[in-house]
Every structure is written in structure tokens, then in C-alpha cells.
Amino acid sequence: MPKSTATTSAAAVLAALATAKGEDSQEIDNEALNELSTHLQNLLNSNTELENQLTELKTELEKKQTEHAAEIKNLTDDFETRLKSMEDKQVSNEEFAAKVMAHTGIAPVEGESAGDGGEDTTPENRTIEQHQAHYQSLENPREASLYYEKHIRPALFGQN
């Protein structure tokens, strides 16, 4: 029984009792007592039902909490993996930048990441190692030479 219905019914029984008591406190008939008993039983049942619902909710909550904890752990692990990968890549880029520096005497532009060919970077904004990486990726010898002459040669030798 819904809680609101049980409360209404109990209020009606109490009202009936008060009426009966007002007329004659010594003459409360069995019918009213039975009705009261029934409503009290209904209230007890309703309470039990609510307790069951509460238990179910608690169980569900605990289940959700477990799932969320697992999800948070996965996200944390993934983040740590990515962070480790970025740190490794950073070391690799620093080594490559050192090699480029040794070859060309030109340091990579500070603040730009070294590395993967820089398809997301316009040619004018590429670092020398990004130019090298892009040059490597060109399979057509003519395109590679054009790219070398336009972008790498000026970086290595200036306009001379």
C-alpha cells in the first residue's frame, strides 16, 4: 500500500475512534476495533514494503558505487599509461632534437612538440625535425626534392 493511502486511512480510523469516544467512551464496538486492527496491519505491511524498497535501493547503490570505482580505476590507469607514453615520447624528441642540433646547428622551435610529421601544422610553422619527418614520408622523389628546396634548405643554409 502506498504510504499516502495508509496515512489517510489511519487518520479516518482515528477520527472514527474519536467520534465513538465522544459519544460513549465505554462503548467502542468490535467493528471499530477490527477496522483499527486492519489499518494497523496495513501500516505494518506498508512499513515492511518500504523497508524492502530501501534495501533494494541500498543494494543498487552499492552496485553503482562498485561500478563507478572500477570505471574510475580504469580511467586512472589509462591516464597514467598515456602520461608515461608522453614522457617517453618527450625523451625521444629531445634525443632527436639533439641530433638535429648536432647536424644543423639549429635548435627546434621552443614550445612546439617534435616529431610526427606535423600534419596538423602548416609547413611554415614546422620545426626542422618536423620538416625532416615530412620529407621522410614523401615517396615521390620529385616532391621530396621540392619540399627539401622550399623548406629544409633555407632552414639549413639560410638563403645562400
Binding site: Y148, E149, R153
Partner: peptide
């Protein structure tokens, strides 16, 4: 044939090759 740079000395090879062509 890709212009793949090997890890050692190949950057130098590319510079030498392109500069020979240029000169």
C-alpha cells in the same frame, strides 16, 4: 622508393644527395 631516413647517418645522406643534385 620512400625517402625513409634510417636512424644513423641517413639524415646526412639526404643532405649530401640533395645538395649534389642542387650543385
Amino acid at each position: 622508393m620512400p625517402n625513409t631516413l634510417a636512424p644513423h647517418g641517413a639524415v646526412s645522406l639526404d643532405i649530401i644527395a640533395q645538395e649534389i643534385i642542387f650543385a
